[in-house]
């Protein structure tokens, strides 16, 4: 059972090379960007004597730590934006292409049920893609820390203390992992919807998937002057209930915490219990389950001839 599921997920890696090419490409771009930044910053050697993160004249360890965290989170966001696009294109393609190229007849000639196939694609979208992207983020962080360390050491700085001594690696990584996975679960109703569109539509899955998300709130506003659909669907992305009493946007605008917190710990801002007990989390999972079930039925009952 597990071995079969792993085979089905491996298949997704073969078909959708973007699953691993995207994090690899972004990792290379970020690394090149950091290298360019190091070269550029070294031109201001007097102001920043050991280039950005190794700079001894940054006012203190806490500031360096915050600088590094912001660098970590900043590069992570590039990956996460790519992850959102990747999930959309992957899910919309996953049950559509096999019908278009008729390979569905081959896949269905093997002892794998429609439910097993669709669930393997759901699990790939909700867990595997985010985990691969997280791995890409972590490897990119490590490579960039190593590059920066070499740069600082080459300039005569104590890289061990200046870079590694002030980096909250595990804290940032766990924070990223929890936010990414909970975010994927939170957005899973969309993933279920994309799977259903992918199994059902005869053409243009991207258009068919996004049309209702744009048109339904418009119609609702014109007809009823209400915004239930828009707030439930359109704004879901902004309301991930995992942050402890803070708004992500305010987090960076409110500078108070920079001075009041001696040692910043990102994990302290997370409340996994709140996420797991939030009714909308479970409502989302149920909606995702219903839409995925519908996708399974469409794949099973549709006659392609």
């Amino acid at each position: 059972m597990i071995a079969q599921l792993l085979t089905l997920i491996r298949r997704e890696f073969w078909e959708h090379r973007s699953i691993w090419v995207t994090p690899l490409a972004i990792g290379i771009l970020v690394t090149l960007g950091v290298m360019a930044m190091l070269v550029f910053a070294s031109g201001f050697a007097k102001e920043l004597d050991l280039a950005i993160f190794g700079a001894q004249n940054l006012t203190g360890d806490n500031e360096r730590r915050i600088g590094l965290i912001l660098f970590f989170l900043g590069t992570s966001w590039i990956f996460l934006i790519a992850l959102a696009f990747l999930i959309v294109f992957y899910t919309l393609d996953s049950l559509y292409t096999e019908r278009k190229d008729k390979s569905i007849l081959f896949w269905r000639s093997l002892p794998v049920t429609d439910a097993e196939t669709v669930v393997s694609k759901l699990l790939t979208a909700v867990f595997v893609l985010p985990l691969i992207m997280c791995a890409g983020i972590f490897v990119t962080h490590l490579i960039n820390l190593i590059l920066t360390s070499i740069w600082v050491a080459a300039k005569g700085g104590a890289a061990g203390a200046l870079i590694w001594g002030s980096v909250p690696i595990i804290d940032t990584w766990l924070f990223t992992l929890v936010v990414v996975i909970s975010g994927a679960i939170w957005m899973s109703p969309f993933i279920g919807w994309f799977l259903l569109v992918s199994a059902w539509t005869k053409r243009m899955p991207l258009l068919v998937a996004f049309m209702p998300i744009i048109v339904v709130p418009l119609l609702e506003w014109i007809v009823f002057r209400t915004r239930f659909f828009a707030s439930a669907v359109g704004e879901r992305n902004d309301n991930l209930p995992i942050f402890r009493g803070m708004d992500v946007e305010d987090f960076f605008e409110d500078k108070e915490w920079m001075h009041s917190i001696q040692e910043l710990r990102l994990l302290e801002f997370l409340d996994i219990g709140k996420f797991l007990t939030h009714p909308e989390t479970w409502l989302g999972i149920i909606v995702c389950g219903l839409l995925t079930t519908a996708a399974i039925y469409v794949r099973r009952f549709r006659d392609e001839s």
Binding site: A3, Q4, L6, T7, L8, R10, R11, W14, E15, E98, D101, K102, S103, L105, F106, W107, S109, L110, P111, V112
Partner: peptide, 22 residues
């Protein structure tokens, strides 16, 4: 089913891996 149903993107080795796995 007919001649054209094997997925075009797959490698022969991967096809064997897949069938072996399921």
């Amino acid at each position: 089913a007919d001649v054209a149903v094997l997925p075009r993107w797959i490698k022969v080795r991967q096809l064997l891996d897949y069938v072996e796995g399921v």
